[in-house]
Design a protein around this nucleic acid. Structure first.
Length: 561
RNA sequence: GCGCCUGUAGCUCAGGUGGACAGAGCACCGGCCUUCUAAGCCGGCGGUCGCAGGUUCGAAUCCUGCCAGGCGCGCCA
């Protein structure tokens, strides 16, 4: 709807540009915006204000000329010039009626677009090391990443969900030692317990399963515990598989799936790390100093140069990071998006610099990052410290068990990722339910109930009759609801474009509010069949948009509550 | 010391890339169930948009400088 009006305005302006503004350059970006105040119409443009100076005309005069140049359109009922020189557009009733028809015709597809034109995007998220169950920070990561993946799919991108993890290295060695210690009957704090060992109870569970020779399956392979407490390598293999398996169960409960699990170790075994180093050296951006090999990342915007190969001959983590993102490019992701905790923001510049130093034609902004701030968890009025190494933290599983997947997902997505998030367990546990997800779901359940009641009264909704009777929807509440519905495609577009999934959560609350208000003010199942069918059409369209929006968030749309 | 993020109502937060009088939920006060689920609706209370400058027709939004909080700044991962 907005797009149609935008096109109308833009083409008119382009056609008349020379005459009106003495320039052919229109301002970039959208010209139209939704008005905040309905007395200002449905949409407004400030082009006359923007272009007044260079055209040498007063804003209101220019606005007059623009309005005069606009061709008549069935979209627009009337225009007015207001304030310093805004042009306000009042859309025709039929425009909104057409939109309701579009909602029902498009169904699940309403709100979708082909903006991405089928281009490939790899979205990497969670990417937790298999050293323990997922914590709430991973939950925020998963909620953001999965919702963005759904948004990008809805806007026409070819999306691959990817999970990257390290199955070797220091942390995994520490994991193996911890499991081994547990298998020997040691507890954290006992003499002989490994320094910085993982202290969580889950380590004991893994040790028990290993000693009892249980099988565990993860990422398509099955590992059986050997029961040999001296075989650290076997313990390592088993522990990684066991924890990957546990994480997969957590993710499944959170309704998150991945298409690709990428192992850091494969970068070494496939020679990708060596290859990346060779490329960087070959392009002349490296140097040796103090027995180490350095990359001149400062040539590409980093604030200091980085060591690639330490003087002991091993690589820093930075190298496989570059090799990994290079592999994304090589695997055909035209766009790569990584969801990352803000505490890792220091690595962004150097990874991008590393990719630039390859001189491989990779865009400067590759990969793009969505950084989210910390999640702190409150319980009993005190902060619960998140620490994977200490083994004491609130897991994603805790959250799902306590407040449910729907509420957990909504909570973790509902505010912009730049803000820190306080997850109050007690509040989420309390029965007072100030949780907005129920408010939205309740709107959906109420609509389902309306249609059930209709059937129980021996009536049926005649959609065709509703369609021709839409002119009867003249109540302010009905107008407001139609406007709200018509905003959905713009919300989806904006959320996908700016990678801000919380916009969807916020919008759904507004839509639910608009519906609840309408519900309380008017009866849908009335004697007048034409009015009834028209109102039910509006209600059915509302239900569809609620479903589509909730689906983007991965939240269920219950038929009853 | 340097970099990134944040600062909006008592509390938790929105504010669509500069617009027309700053919004919502919770909390508090007062109304609404013989009619489609009251997990709802309506009304009221409540704000120098951290502070000070600047840019312009116009700033919560952009720029500069301060103040406060969070997170990072290893030949750790």
């Amino acid at each position: 709807m907005k797009q149609q009006l935008e096109n109308l305005l833009r083409s008119t302006l382009a056609l008349q540009a020379g005459e009106l503004f003495a320039t052919t350059k229109l301002p970039p970006g959208p010209l139209l915006e939704r008005t905040r105040d309905p007395t200002h119409g449905d949409f407004a443009t400030n082009v006359a204000l923007l272009l007044a100076r260079q055209s040498g005309k007063k804003p209101r005069e220019l606005a007059q000329e623009i309005v005069a140049a606009l061709p008549a359109s069935p979209l627009v009922a009337r225009t007015e010039i207001a304030g310093p020189g805004f042009i306000n557009f009042f859309l025709s009733a039929s425009t909104y009626h057409d939109e309701l028809n579009s909602v029902l015709a498009a169904g699940k597809k309403y709100g979708c677009s082909d903006t991405g034109k089928g281009h490939r995007v790899g979205i990497e998220f969670v990417s937790a090391n298999p050293t323990g169950p997922l914590h709430v920070g991973h939950g925020r990561n998963a909620a953001i990443g999965d919702t963005l993946a759904r948004l990008l799919e809805a806007t026409g991108w070819n999306v691959t969900r990817e999970f990257y993890y390290n199955d070797a290295g220091v942390q995994i060695q520490n994991l193996a030692l911890s499991v081994q210690a547990r298998a020997r009957g040691l507890k954290p704090g006992d003499s002989g317990w490994p320094e910085d060992g993982y202290r969580g109870e889950y380590i004991a569970d893994v040790a028990r399963a290993f000693m009892q020779r249980e099988p565990v399956t993860a990422d398509g392979r099955t590992v059986t515990g050997s029961g040999d407490v001296t075989d650290l390598e076997a313990i390592r293999h088993f522990a990684v598989a066991a924890l990957r398996h546990e994480q997969d169960l957590d993710l499944k409960a959170f309704r998150v799936h991945f298409d690709v699990y990428f192992l850091e170790s494969s970068l070494y075994t496939d020679g990708k790390v060596e290859e990346t180093v060779r490329e960087l050296v070959a392009h002349g951006h490296t140097y040796e100093e103090g027995g180490a090999l350095w990359l001149r990342t400062t040539d590409f915007g980093d604030d200091k140069n980085r060591v690639m190969r330490k003087s002991d001959g091993t690589y820093t983590y930075f190298v496989p990071d570059v090799a990994y993102h290079r592999s994304k490019w090589q695997r055909g992701y035209e766009r790569a998006t990584t969801i990352l905790g803000a505490d890792h923001h220091g690595s962004l510049a150097r990874v991008r610099a590393g990719l630039q130093a390859l001189d491989a034609g990779i865009p400067k902004s590759y990969p793009e990052y969505v950084l989210y701030q910390m999640v702190t968890v409150m319980r009993g009025g005190e902060e619960v410290k998140l620490s994977k190494r200490a083994g004491s933290y609130v897991t994603l599983r805790d959250l799902i068990d306590e407040v449910g997947c729907d509420a957990a997902r909504y909570f973790l997505i509902a505010r912009k990722s730049d803000s820190q998030l306080v997850f109050d367990i007690d509040l989420a546990l309390s029965q007072t339910n100030e949780n907005p997800v129920y408010y939205i779901q309740y709107a959906h359940a109420r609509i389902a109930s309306v249609f059930r009641q209709l059937g129980e009264k021996g009536l049926a909704w005649d959609a065709k009759n509703g369609g021709v009777s839409l002119a009867m929807l003249t109540q302010p509440h009905e107008q407001a609801l139609m406007v709200c519905i018509s905003r959905f495609p713009e919300i989806v577009d904006a959320a996908a474009r700016t990678l801000d999934p919380h916009l969807v959560a916020q919008y759904l609350r507004e839509l639910a509010n608009s519906f609840h208000t309408y519900y309380d003010a008017h009866t849908f199942i009335t004697e007048d069949a034409a009015l009834r069918d028209a109102r039910l059409m509006l209600v059915a369209a509302t239900r569809q948009v609620l479903r589509n929006g909730l689906a983007l968030l991965g939240v269920s749309a219950p038929e009853s509550m």
